[in-house]
Design a protein around this nucleic acid. Structure first.
Length: 728
DNA sequence: GAGCACTGC
């Protein structure tokens, strides 16, 4: 038996003093909002309180978490406090892992898992209480759950309790959303953090952070410094400059220093010491994920981090925080169908969250590299919720597949509704991949897809799998879907890394058909080695993401075998022997990605996207798509995503054929957004979709490319083509 | 010929 826990002393938690108040509110209301700051104990105690008071007699308590590690570590903690083995009365369910049993009455799960559960059981009858924890993070899934809960409490008014708990969520707003439900405030255990503001925005925030950090190091008492920057490049720059400046300090003038980078793509073994994958301090003693040796005594750590350190990872020992006031954020533009990754100002909630990182162990200090006027007047109150920054095709299909009565997607009750453009964009996408018909009704294919939505995939890929099953290339399509989900990446991407470049050149090249085919070939090669991690390293591939894609593939195979009516072949390998040009697979991809189709320009290698508001885009330079003997790319391609960086690019591309594209073009002509959204009653909203809409900007202008440049590019592509042929 | 914040099913 493991030694007993270092006596967590639950009574010391602020929430215990409010037990009667909480129970009274829950007794009298279907929905209660609980605002509890860090360290209030809400995540571990609320479920236990309700359990003690008999709420588990008629069903289990579900507690959602936005992150897997949180679901696991919090449930372990609760099991320990109740002195039961995990998986019995207390359990957790996350993707790939279900540690629950029939006896489980307190169940921690990720919000995504609860959404999946409600597909097979829309009323969620197994639960008497549903607690949405950390709702202030406003993940896409939490927001959908909030809308579903609002519907559910009407149907189950007598036997369901919903608790919405968070650190800083605007309680009044949520209360209004749930027709004036009560809001309880539970204090936290954070220490005060003193805030200092700059008089103006620095022109160079790296330099400014650097100076502040050195200043703290020289003048302040011991305590680690956490520096928030926006990305990996800035982290690397900061780390090397910090080391250099610390070296230059007079010897013996201050304590030793250790500079550590911290961002999401670091391999776990390199992450900063004493980083804990837990959400609050009680857990720290129990589940440390210690990666470095702890800092030696009389040594100050400088942790240069992205916003992983804001919520996902807690660094112990931080007393000083330096906050540049920016964050890198991915956003989706529903009108162009394009993603971009932009550096934007953080919100006040985020700024306070960052500051709070300094006050976990003792009173701290936060240096904000912006004036207080910017904090007060320019920063948004809260971060724009994910639902307003993402493509909603998957979520809309999910809601349609719930078969809820009287559901009108455009009028679904969201806490913060996504824009009309965004919902219409989702409907258009679903129409183009045959999930809904011209009047917005779910189709036969859509019904199968609704089933397939049990597959954790975006709609394009579920549609591809259905088609692949028909065409007899399911096994290959499963691999492609799995590998794309894992976003396998090269380990080093620096262009000056000759070693990495050489390794990558030894990888299969998609036989010229594009990136989906290459990914398939890479996975099949790895499979042939018996999933040898060394093979990944030898070919500059991240072992972690390769293993993840293997897990995903296994999961997808299991699910599809359960839901498919006819026979499925998930394991046939090396389909290229019978289909050397991957025609079946590419055809399935063409149908699945009918909403992400592009047509090449006649005279150069630029493409325009096919569909609503056509965009001018280019093949991403990392693509292995091959041009023909004249240096031209294929006339039609489908792409996995559009990403706007220095230019608008298509990423992950597959060559398709004209004959396969025709039906999609025909569908486009018939598309009428008013019918799709079921809004035929309103004349005012009608804005007929014309094919003319597509011609927005002239190709040459948009691509900003002179004719001569185009010619030289084609010439270069042609030379590469000939060189490749020569090599073969 | 470019570059990738963070989650999750």
């Amino acid at each position: 038996m493991p030694s007993p826990s270092p006596s967590p002393a639950a009574p010391a938690l602020p929430i215990s003093e409010h037990e009667d108040e909480i129970i009274a509110a829950v007794e009298a209301n279907s929905v209660v909002v609980i605002i509890g700051e860090t360290g209030s104990g809400k995540s571990t105690q609320l479920s236990q309180i309700l359990h003690r008071r008999g709420y588990t007699r008629r069903g289990a308590i579900a507690v959602t978490q936005p992150r897997r590690v949180a679901a696991v570590s919090v449930s372990r903690r609760v099991a320990q406090e109740l002195d039961v083995p995990i998986g019995d009365e207390v359990g957790y369910a996350i993707r790939f892992e279900d540690r629950t049993s029939e006896r489980t009455c307190i169940k921690y799960l990720t919000d995504g898992v609860l959404l999946r559960e409600s597909l097979s059981n829309p009323e969620l009858k197994q639960y008497s209480v549903i607690i949405l924890d950390e709702a202030h993070e406003r993940s896409l899934n939490t927001d959908i759950l909030l809308g579903l809960m609002k519907r559910l409490i009407k149907d189950r008014a007598s036997d369901l309790k919903v608790l919405i708990t968070s650190a800083t969520l605007d309680g009044l707003k949520v209360s209004r959303f749930f027709s004036g439900c009560p809001v309880l405030n539970i204090p936290g255990t954070l220490f005060p953090v003193e805030k200092f503001y700059s008089t103006e925005r620095p022109t160079n925030y790296i330099e400014s952070s650097l100076r502040t950090a050195i200043d703290i190091h020289v003048k302040e008492s011991p305590g680690d410094i956490l520096i928030f920057v926006t990305g990996k490049d800035d982290i690397d720059k900061m780390v090397s400059k910090l080391e250099e400046r610390i070296q230059n300090l007079e010897e013996g003038s201050c304590m030793d220093a250790l500079v550590l980078p911290l961002h999401g793509s670091l391999p776990p073994e390199l992450q900063a010491s004493n980083c804990y994958c837990c959400i609050f301090d009680l857990l720290l003693a129990l589940f440390p994920v210690r990666v470095f040796a702890p800092a030696p005594p009389n040594c100050r750590r400088f942790i240069v981090a992205t916003n992983v350190a804001e919520t996902s990872l807690t660094v112990d020992g931080v007393v000083f925080v330096i906050d540049c006031g920016y964050v890198k954020q991915r956003q989706y533009n529903p009108t162009s169908g394009m993603y971009s990754l932009d550096v934007v100002q953080i919100s006040r909630v985020q700024a306070d969250q960052r500051a709070g990182r300094a006050g976990r162990t003792r009173p701290g200090k936060c240096y904000r590299l912006y004036p207080i006027s910017i904090y007060e007047k320019e920063f948004l109150e809260a971060t724009i919720p994910e639902i307003q920054r993402s493509s909603l095709a998957g979520s809309v299909l999910y809601l349609k597949s719930l078969n809820l009565p009287d559901i009108n997607i455009l009028k679904f009750d969201f806490l913060d509704p996504p824009s009309r453009e965004s919902l219409e964009d989702a409907l258009r996408q679903l129409y183009l991949i045959d999930a809904i018909d011209g009047s917005g009704q779910i189709t036969d294919v859509g019904r199968i897809m609704a089933d397939c939505e049990k597959l954790p995939l975006e709609p394009s890929l579920s549609r591809t799998l259905i088609e692949a099953n028909e065409l007899g290339c399911l096994s290959q399509a499963l691999t492609v879907a799995a590998v794309l989900s894992a976003e396998i990446t090269m380990r080093s991407t620096k262009s000056n890394d000759m070693e990495g470049k050489r390794k990558r050149q030894e990888l299969p090249d998609g036989s010229g058909w594009g990136d989906h085919i290459q990914l398939l070939q890479i996975f099949e090669c790895w499979e042939q080695t018996g999933y040898d991690p060394k093979w990944c390293v030898d070919h500059d591939l991240q072992v972690r993401s390769m293993k993840f894609s293997k897990d995903v593939r296994k999961q997808l195979s299991q699910i599809i075998q359960k839901i498919a009516k006819g026979p499925t072949d998930v394991n046939s390998r090396y389909g290229w022997k019978s289909d050397p040009d991957y025609r079946k697979l590419r055809r399935a991809l063409c149908i699945g990605y009918g909403n992400q189709l592009a047509e090449r320009m006649l005279h150069h290698n630029g493409y325009h996207t096919v569909g609503y508001r056509s965009q001018l885009v280019q093949v991403h330079p990392s693509s292995v798509l091959e041009s023909d003997e004249y240096g031209k790319y294929p006339m039609y391609v489908v792409y996995h995503e559009l990403i706007s960086t220095t230019r608008p690019y298509m990423r992950n591309i597959c060559a398709v054929e004209r004959a396969w594209v025709e039906p999609i073009l025909k569908k486009l002509e018939k598309l009428d957004i008013n019918r799709l959204s079921g809004g035929s009653s309103s004349v005012k909203d009608s804005e007929p979709l014309d094919v003319e809409d597509k011609q927005v900007i002239s190709p040459e202008k948009a691509l900003d490319t002179k004719q001569s440049e185009v010619e030289s590019k084609i010439q270069a592509a042609r030379e590469r083509y000939l060189a490749r042929k020569g090599k073969k």
